[in-house]
Structure formats: C-alpha cells, structure tokens
Amino acid sequence: MRRTWQAAEVSAARPETATARTLRLRFPDAVSGVAGQHVDLRLTAEDGYQAVRSYSVAAWVPPHELELTVEELDDGEVSPYLVTELSVGDRLEVRGPVGGWFTWTPDLGGPLQLIAGGSGIVPLMAMLRSHAEARSVVPARLLYSVRDPGSVFYRGELTVLGQEDTQVTIDVAYTRAAPDGRPVGRLTRDAVTAACFPPEDHPAIYICGSTGFVESVASWLVEDGHDAGRIRTERYGG
C-alpha cells in the first residue's frame, strides 16, 4: 500500500456511457491490490488549489496499471474534468490503493452476491473480474440496478460473463427505461429477493450504490433472514 502521493499517467481512456469514462492509470512502480479497494486522486490547479476524491478500482492491469471508471456528477467539481477534459498522457497524483473492508478475494469463498446501484457497479466489477481471473468455482450473482439501458457500464463484458461463465448470473434492473419486454420501475424488495441467493446459502453479500440505495437493499436482505455480518456495504456520495 502506498501511503504517499505518487504521480500516475493516464495511459488510456474510453467512454463507458454518455456520462462516464474509464481511465487507465500507469504507475512508475508495480501496483497491486484486491477487488473492492479504491484510490484517492489529488488534482492541483495552477494556483495551488487542490481537490481530493476517492474512486473505486474497476480493474487491476498488472504490473503497472489499474483502471477507474468515473461518472460525471451534475454539480461536480472534479468528475466533469476527469470525464471530459483529462487526456491520455496527463498526470494525476494518486494515493493507495486503500481500503480493506469492502473487498473480496477468491479465497473468501461464497456464494458471492453482488448488488450495484448505478456507478456502484465499479468495485463489484473488480470482484467479478477477480472471480473470472481466478477461474473461481464460487457461484456468483450480480444484481445491477440502472436508470436505463444507456447507463450500463461494461455492457459487453458483462454480457459475455453472463453467457460464458457458468458460475456467474447477471440480472439488470431498469428504473426509468428498459429494453423491450423488460419491466421498468423502482427496484423492489421482491425483485431483490428473487435475484439473490437465499439466506440458507449464506452468501457473502456486497452492496454498493448511493446511501439511500444501500440502506434500502441492506435492510430488505436482513429482513429476508440474511446474516447482517455477511453483508458488506459501500456508500458513495453524489
């Protein structure tokens, strides 16, 4: 773990949706971590003004790189810059990876239940990628709540994972607009119950999304009989 700020260079950038972008950062030294961790980014303006924000790591690209996915917030100070202005070759200061609670490694077993609201998918995608890389035989399910089909991050990769990895099941729930034939509406307790491993399977549950999303889903799962000690949550600001 890096405890000081170090400069990383943007080595690649690709749009994820109309309002989100994945940035690949290259470090001078090898960088490694586990799925679910995040890094702090520090941006410094010409006059010395600084802003620090945390972003979850979406992918580890050994030995020198990692990827973040950043969603542009309407009144954001940093995210619009990261999504629309930052260019390949620019440098950012990075601290981390940090965080040891909201993490999953294949040796922790499962079944693995992931529940994402919006850009809360990012650390959970890192877990699915870690699961795939390790060729883990742990059964894994992802419930991914999005506004509409255009807001799905990692769409191609998730489709392939859901089709080709027999251990992985992916459910997408649409709250505002859905592809033809799919239901639309606020995520309900029944939908969550239906998309999750039952309590008797004792899944390790990871929930990431806005504070309201996380609180609702976590309380439903506890009411369903899941062990609160098996539920780990991460709330992001927004």
């Binding site: 941006l43 410094t44 303006a45 003004y49 100070e77 810059y81 930052l86 200061e93």
Partner: peptide
C-alpha cells in the same frame, strides 16, 4: 510537492 494537473481549474476562484 504537488504537481499541477494539466487543465484542472476546480471551482472558479476570484
């Protein structure tokens, strides 16, 4: 020492 971030202005400061 902090390195400047190319093109980052942050909130407008007057």
């Amino acid at each position: 020492m902090a390195i400047p971030t190319s093109g980052f202005a942050g909130r407008r400061r007057t």
